[in-house]
Design a protein around this nucleic acid. Structure first.
Length: 331
DNA sequence: AAGAATTGCAACCGCGACGTG
DNA sequence: ACACGTCGCGGTTGCAATTCT
């Protein structure tokens, strides 16, 4: 007997999400927090399996997501992290605030791989392509994929200093990394993570200096510790989210408690949205600039909030959807 | 202009990890 | 210790959009 399906698929919808479904999902999560995914579809009135809802939320609807192409710096981080971690996309994503594992995985497969090959670098080994490695490229990358770190360990087992990423996150219990702090991210935790981050990032940045297309001069160098700011509210852009709040797998389990005390608005969706975006049945259109701006406004609590949500949001001036909420893993 | 080929990305699938009783 | 339910991850697929011929 095979594994039981994750849910009863009879009568459940599959395929692209409609804006109406998105709306239901967002409204439900904003008002109730994330309860168990399995129960969520029923409660939210969705004909989807919980898994599908989770995926849609984490990969697309989560308000703290950045959209659009990865910046050069992000791309560089992805490459470096990939060299260290291999195809551990969620781990990689946890280092890139606002990015999802799926997004990074897709970007890797569609852009970065090609770019690296073009630059004469084996995307699997992260080493300069040799004839031999080129031959092996006929095989699927992932099958032979071994993180550079492991290769280096094998190669230099008895020489040189230990690879800095030895104390890599992957060797630590998952829940330790992703555990959402009850109150705030402990500064010590941040410090430790920053240290780890530095350790991870350092070695490969050197190799980048050798590359033509990505000179470190070209992209503003933001040290990881500049990204991994403590969770205290700041006027910084939403990209300065803490790791824990941006982790695609971050725990939202406390959010419902949090939300009990919040009076969240039942978001009204503009007619424009309904009319223009429903027509082509393209949920992609959902995230136009205005909509993204609305989320950002909610996050940052900037002065544009009133413009973004007209009546509903004004009726709830005390709605707490500032950076604290994000840092607490509310979203 | 039209069909074919390619690309890019959202979504799905299956498995493993983890928590709970 | 075991069975079961739930969740998250990584690989894969499907399809719309874009580019090529």
């Amino acid at each position: 007997m095979g594994r039981q399906p994750c849910c009863d698929k009879v009568g459940l919808k599959k395929g692209p999400w409609t804006a109406e479904e998105d709306k239901k999902l967002i409204n439900f999560i904003l008002t109730n927090g994330q309860c168990c995914w399995r129960a969520l579809p029923k409660l939210a009135g969705l004909l989807r399996c919980g898994k599908s809802c989770r995926l849609r939320w984490t990969n697309y609807l989560r308000p703290d997501l950045k959209r659009g192409l990865l910046s050069e710096y992000e791309e560089k981080m992805v490459i470096d992290l990939h060299a260290q971690l291999g195809n551990r996309w969620s781990k990689i994503a946890s280092h890139l605030p606002g990015r999802t594992d799926n997004e990074i995985k897709n970007h890797w497969n569609t852009h970065i791989k090609k770019k690296l090959k073009k630059m004469g670098i084996d995307p699997v080994t992260h080493k300069p392509l040799s004839n031999k490695t080129e031959e092996t490229q006929a095989q699927p990358d992932e099958q032979t994929h071994q993180p550079l770190q492991e290769q280096q360990q094998q190669q230099h087992q008895h020489q040189q200093q230990p690879i800095p990423v030895e104390k890599d996150l992957k060797f630590e219990p998952e829940k330790e990394q992703n555990r959402e702090p009850e109150t705030s991210v402990e500064s010590s935790t941040i410090t430790e993570e920053v240290k780890e981050e530095d350790q991870i990032m350092t070695p490969l940045f050197d190799s980048w200096e050798l590359m033509n297309e990505f000179c470190t001069d070209e992209a503003p160098i933001i040290e990881p510790n500049e990204i991994l700011v403590p969770s205290a509210p700041s006027s910084a852009s939403p990209t300065t989210t803490t790791i824990s709040s941006s982790t695609s797998t971050s725990s939202y389990s406390n959010s419902s408690n949090f939300l009990e005390d919040l009076l969240l608005p039942d978001l009204e969706w503009s007619d424009d949205y309904n009319d223009t975006n429903f027509d082509n049945n393209s949920s992609m259109a959902l995230w136009d600039d205005d909509f993204i701006g609305s989320w950002n406004s909610l996050i940052n609590g900037d002065g544009d909030r009133k413009q973004v949500f007209d009546a509903p949001i004004n009726q709830y001036p005390s709605v707490i959807m500032d950076s604290d909420s994000w840092d607490y893993g509310l979203f």
